[in-house]
Simulated scan of single mutants.
Amino acid sequence: MTVFVTGATGVFGRRIVDELTDRNRTVVGLSRDADGDAAVRDSGGVPVRGDVLDQDGLRSAADAAGDRSGEAVDAVIHAATRLPPAERTTAEYWERNDEVRREGARNLVAALGDDVDRFVFPSVVWVARQPDGSCFDETAERHPDRATRSAAEVEDFLADAAADHGFDPLILRTGFFYGPDDHTTRSFAENLRSGDLPIVGGGILGRKDAELSMLHVDDAGCAVAAAVDAGVTGLYHVVDDEPVTVADYLRTFAYLLDAPEPSRVPWWLARPFAGKDAVRFMTSPMPTSSEKFRADVGWEPDYPTYREGLEQVVEAWRADGTLAELRGDEDADTGTRTNAVENTV
């Protein structure tokens, strides 16, 4: 099997390429420059130059993919995004991400849709979170907002395009990513260390905590590869074993970082400086599970809860010097804290 991956040079995409090549799949990764070429090669893939917003360029990239791999492309994974920074976002940032998701999918289908068997799109579970905060599954009605509107549009587009082009769509709605090389995770750590990341709660007094469904980015890459290997199609939620409140997640992360315990503020007080998108995300519950995905694919996360996942993040940072940089010292050792994390919440 030969798999064509967009977003192959990103934090998520590199893991997809790495996991697929470990499973003896030929992976062609879309790249825009020499650094991207190197990133794809380092993950075990074959780089081809192109841009998801350039349909003609994608056709050339698809031809090059066949030439370089010696095989026709069997599946496409559209993992490319242009997510806004972790800091306060604007409508312009979301429009750029929407364009990459939406127009990228259209261009990929136009360039490759008639020739591939499967089209995989990593979406997000919070596109279907419920207004009352209740637990939901793959059958739940969607409620997209500005941040998830394009994800819903791509889901719908692929369902319609599949009938016209003859491929099988696979939608994998993932939980909220975190990991040692994830920009948002690093931003959270920096702001926790400086005391600038409060717990934003719902309700007038800010005492209502939203449960979020999380997923370590290593587990996300493994899940995509496992789904491709299993040959499944349709819609699945892919999250870890335990939804976590924003309060517990940030307090645990702060503890592991030896940072001050974050303060608590109500949503209406945080909105002017954090922005409505971030506040809505932090205060809108999205509890779901991977029960269906596990049953059909046999996937299990290496980091079943945020506790194990955050321990891995901090351990990785301790090993590569990031933790010392965050703490402002030359020799950071968090071994005793990582072993005691389960007692913190």
Rank of each mutant, 00 (worst) to 15 (best):
A75L: 08
R271Q: 15
T184L: 14
H143N: 14
N339W: 12
Y249W: 13
T288Q: 02
D302R: 13
L310A: 13
A38Y: 05
G275S: 14
A140T: 06
T185H: 03
V28F: 05
A80F: 11
V313S: 08
F177A: 01
G70E: 10
R32N: 09
V76R: 06
E138S: 04
D35G: 12
T184W: 13
V246A: 12
P287M: 07
F281P: 01
A64G: 05
E141M: 08
H165T: 11
R264D: 08
S289P: 00
T81D: 11
R294K: 06
V127F: 04
D333I: 10
A72D: 15
S60Y: 02
P285N: 02
D63P: 01
A230Y: 02
D182M: 11
L257D: 09
P260Q: 13
R307Q: 13
D42G: 11
R337T: 10
K276T: 15
L170D: 04
V46D: 02
T26F: 04
K276C: 06
S194K: 05
T6D: 11
A226C: 07
E99Y: 00
D333M: 09
V239I: 05
V109S: 04
P285Y: 04
I199S: 04
G203Q: 13
F12P: 00
A105E: 06
Q312E: 15
V48T: 10
A274I: 03
D74I: 02
G203T: 07
V200L: 05
P122A: 07
T336V: 11
T89M: 14
N107H: 12
A128Q: 07
F121H: 03
D67E: 15
V27S: 05
R207K: 09
T334Y: 01
V27L: 09
G113L: 08
L205G: 07
A316H: 14
Y236K: 03
G50H: 08
L83W: 07
G195K: 04
D145W: 09
T6F: 11
P301L: 12
A38V: 13
A86F: 15
S123I: 03
G335L: 11
G44H: 12
A247I: 03
V345E: 12
K292E: 07
D132C: 09
T21W: 01
V27Q: 03
V279I: 12
S31P: 01
R149P: 00
V244Y: 01
V341P: 03
N24H: 08
R59S: 11
A62V: 09
V17P: 00
P262V: 12
G29L: 07
M1Q: 02
V265E: 09
R318H: 10
F136E: 01
F4E: 06
R32W: 08
G335S: 15
Y255L: 06
R82Y: 10
D277M: 14
R264H: 14
L256H: 03
S289W: 00
A39T: 07
P266M: 13
F121L: 03
V313C: 14
G202E: 04
T21P: 03
G113T: 05
F293H: 00
S31G: 11
A225F: 01
D296E: 15
V244R: 08
R264A: 14
P84L: 05
P243R: 04
W268Q: 12
D22P: 00
R106K: 15
Q312C: 13
H237I: 00
V341Y: 05
D33R: 13
L112C: 08
G335N: 12
A79K: 02
D98S: 13
D67M: 14
V17I: 08
D145L: 06
Y303P: 02
A332R: 03
W317D: 06
